[in-house]
Design a protein around this nucleic acid. Structure first.
Length: 579
DNA sequence: GCCGTTTTCGGCCCGACTGTTTTCAGTCG
C-alpha cells in the first residue's frame, strides 16, 4: 500500500472516531500519524519491511501493528468495523464549513441524516433549527457552507496565492497606523499549495491610536475588490472569501506582539503544538499574544528570534516548521544552514526564441545577469518535442555560434553555457546521438511524453537516462503539474540511488506549477547523496523571478548550498560533471 | 494513541468568533 492510501485510512479513522465522540487526543494521534505518513518522503512499505515503523514520529506499537495489517492484507479490521458503524456520508459532512464532528453526529443521530444531500434538504425544510444548540442562523450557515463546498476548487497554487496575498497586503499597508504587514501561514512556509491565506498586520501600540488603526484595517480589508463575502469579522480577526472561493484570514495586533503573532500564525499547527509543549516544560504559556509566566506576568516578543530565544532555541526558518525533526535539530544545535537565494550563482535551465522561449539569447543573458547570476545554461528543446519547436542538430550548431557571440559581448561579467533540454524517448534513448551531446557543455534530459507508462517501464526509462554518460541533469524528474496532472509513477528510491551512483544531478524546477522535485523528495534525495539543481525553466526575461520558489522548495527539503550545484562556482560546477 | 534527564501513567496548545445561550458549546486555525 502506498503512503497516501495508508494516510487516508488513518485520516478517515480520525474523522470517524471524532464523530463517535472519542478522546480528542486519540483522534489527534491518528491525524498526526496520517500527516507524517503522507509527507514521509520515502515509501512506508520500505520502512515496514525494514522494521522501522516506530521510528516515524507519531507511530507507536498500536499504529505500527495497524500498518503491518494493511501492508500484509490490504485491509484493516478495526477500520472496517468503524465503517460499519459510521456511514461514509456522515464523514463527508465534515467537509462543510461550520459543520464539525459534534454537529454531524447530531444530524445523524437525531434526524437520521447520512449524506450531504439529505442534510441540504433538511436545512431547506427548516428541520435543523429545532435541534439543541441550533437555530435559524446556524441552519443558514449550514446551507451556505454546502454551497461553498460545491464551489470549492481545492487548494490554491503558490503562483496564484503569492501575488494575491501581496496585492492585499499592499492595500492594507497604506492604512494610517499600520506598522507592518506580512503573509503568514502555509504561504510563508512556502508550501506548494495553500488551503487559505493568512495575513498579519501590526498597528502601533499607543492607545487609542492603535485600536483605531486596527478598526480601519478591518474596514479596509472587508472592502477590498477581491472580497466576495465576509465570513466573520471581530476586533482582531476577519475572514473573507474571494470571488475565486479562496478564504483569507486577517489578524491585526499591536507591533509589540509581532514576534509571537507572526510565529503563531505561520504555524504549522503541529510545529506550534510542539513549541507550546516546550514552553509549558519551562513554566511558560505561549500564545499569539506573548509568553505568560505562571505568576501571570507577560513576556512580549517583537520579533520571532525573541520567541525562539525565550524557549532556548535558535530561530527556526519558516520552511522547516512542519514538526519533521526541526525542533529536535534546534535543541541539539544541528539546524541546517539552509541554502538562500543569494547563494545561487547560476541557472541551469532556460529557453529562448531558438525553441519555445519568447526572448533572444542576449536578452535572457542580460536578464539573468541583472538578477545577480554569474552563469546560465542554455537549454532549448530538442527536435522531437514538436510542440516546442525543438532544435535540430544543425540548429544547435548555429545556436552555439550565437552563444559565443553573446559571451564576447557580455565580457567576463557573465557566461552562457551551451546546453540542451534533450527528450528522453519512449524507449529510454535520447533525441540526439552521443557525438552531438558530447559537443555541449552540459546536457539536461527530460521526459515530456509517455508519463502515463506503467511504473516499471517509466522507471526503466528514467534510469536509462540517468545512466547515460552524456546526461548531466534530469529536468523536472516526475513531470507533475500541481493540481493538474500527477507525475509519472516512478520508483523514486531507484531513481535517487541511480542518481547518487552516477553523480547525475536532479532538478528542482522552480516554476510554481511544477516545483519538481517536491520538498519531501528533495529531503530524501539529499539523504541518499544526490546533488540538486535549482532551475527557473524561464521562457522569457521575467521567468527568472520564480527562482526563490525553487530555493524555498529546496529549503523545505533541508537543502544546504553544498547540495545545490548551481550554488557553486562555474568551475566547481563543471568539475563535478567531469569526474 | 503517543510519549517520557522531572513521568511507563497521565498528561497531551491556546484563543477568537459565532450563535444560542443566561455561562457556554462548537468550530476553526
Amino acid at each position: 500500500m502506498k503512503n497516501q492510501e495508508v494516510a487516508a485510512v488513518f485520516s478517515v479513522m480520525a474523522d470517524m472516531l471524532a464523530i463517535q465522540g472519542e478522546n480528542y487526543h486519540r483522534i489527534m494521534a491518528y491525524r498526526r500519524a496520517a500527516e507524517n505518513i503522507a509527507t514521509l518522503g520515502r515509501p512506508l512499505e520500505q520502512a515496514w519491511q525494514a522494521g522501522e515503523l516506530e521510528s516515524i514520529p507519531g507511530i507507536g506499537k498500536t499504529l505500527a501493528a495497524k500498518i503491518d495489517e494493511l501492508m500484509r492484507t490490504g485491509r484493516l479490521g478495526v477500520y472496517e468495523k468503524l465503517q460499519s458503524q459510521v456511514p461514509a456520508g456522515v464523514v463527508d459532512m465534515l467537509e462543510i464549513p461550520d459543520v464539525g464532528p459534534k454537529r454531524a453526529a447530531l444530524f445523524w443521530n437525531e434526524l437520521g441524516i447520512t449524506s450531504v444531500g439529505a442534510l441540504e434538504q433538511a436545512a431547506r425544510e427548516g428541520s435543523l433549527r429545532a435541534l439543541p444548540g441550533m437555530g435559524a442562523r446556524s441552519e443558514e450557515k449550514v446551507l451556505a457552507g454546502i454551497e461553498a463546498l460545491k464551489r470549492r476548487t481545492g487548494r490554491t497554487r503558490l503562483g496564484v496565492a503569492w501575488p494575491l496575498a501581496h496585492a492585499m497586503l499592499e492595500a492594507l499597508g497604506e492604512v494610517p497606523g499600520v506598522v507592518r504587514a506580512a503573509p503568514a501561514g502555509s504561504l510563508r512556509r512556502v508550501r506548494e499549495t495553500v488551503g487559505d491565506l493568512d495575513l498579519l498586520v501590526a498597528v502601533e501600540d499607543a492607545e487609542p491610536a492603535g485600536p483605531e488603526a486596527a478598526r480601519r484595517v478591518m474596514a479596509r480589508f472587508r472592502e477590498l475588490p477581491q472580497v466576495a463575502e465576509v465570513l466573520l469579522s471581530g476586533t482582531t480577526k476577519t475572514s473573507i472569501r474571494t470571488h475565486e472561493g479562496l478564504q483569507v484570514d486577517l489578524r491585526v495586533l499591536g507591533s509589540a506582539r509581532w514576534g509571537t503573532a507572526l510565529q503563531y500564525f505561520t504555524g504549522s499547527q503541529a510545529h506550534n503544538i510542539r513549541l507550546r509543549g516546550l514552553a509549558l516544560d519551562q513554566g511558560l504559556s505561549l500564545s499569539e499574544y506573548g509568553l505568560k509566566r505562571e505568576d501571570g506576568t507577560e513576556i512580549l516578543c517583537a520579533s520571532e528570534e525573541e520567541v525562539y530565544a525565550a524557549l532556548g532555541l535558535p530561530l527556526i526558518p519558516p520552511e522547516l516548521r512542519e514538526d519533521r525533526g526541526e525542533i529536535e535539530a534546534a535543541l541539539e544545535g544541528h539546524l541546517p544552514e539552509l541554502i538562500e537565494m543569494e547563494d545561487l550563482k547560476g541557472d541551469l535551465q532556460f529557453h529562448t526564441t531558438w525553441s519555445d522561449g519568447h526572448q533572444s539569447l542576449l536578452d535572457m543573458a542580460q536578464a539573468a545577469r541583472a538578477r545577480g547570476l554569474k552563469y546560465a545554461l542554455v537549454t532549448d528543446h530538442s527536435h522531437s518535442l514538436g510542440v516546442a519547436q525543438g532544435l535540430a542538430v544543425e540548429d544547435l550548431r548555429r545556436q552555439r555560434a550565437e552563444i559565443e557571440e553573446v559571451n564576447r559581448r557580455m565580457g567576463n561579467t557573465f557566461r552562457l553555457l551551451a546546453g540542451i533540454e534533450v527528450e528522453v524517448l519512449a524507449d529510454g534513448s535520447l533525441d540526439f546521438p552521443d557525438h552531438v551531446l558530447a559537443e555541449l557543455d552540459l546536457v539536461v534530459a527530460a521526459v515530456h511524453t509517455g508519463l502515463r507508462q506503467d511504473r516499471e517501464q517509466v522507471t526503466a526509462r528514467m534510469l536509462a537516462a540517468i545512466r547515460n554518460p552524456h546526461v548531466d541533469i534530469i529536468a523536472h524528474p516526475t513531470g507533475r503539474l500541481i493540481g493538474e496532472r500527477e507525475g509519472a509513477d516512478l520508483d523514486m528510491e531507484l531513481v535517487f540511488h541511480a542518481a547518487a551512483d552516477t553523480g547525475t544531478v536532479l532538478e528542482v524546477n522552480a516554476h510554481p506549477s511544477r516545483l519538481d522535485l517536491r520538498d519531501a523528495h528533495v529531503r530524501r534525495a539529499i539523504e541518499l547523496g544526490v546533488k540538486l539543481a535549482i532551475s527557473s525553466d524561464a521562457h522569457d526575461v521575467d521567468g527568472f523571478a520564480v527562482l526563490p520558489m525553487g530555493v524555498a522548495t529546496a529549503r523545505r527539503g533541508w537543502a544546504i548550498a553544498g547540495d545545490v550545484v548551481n550554488a557553486w562556482s562555474m568551475e566547481d560546477l563543471l568539475g563535478w560533471f567531469v569526474q
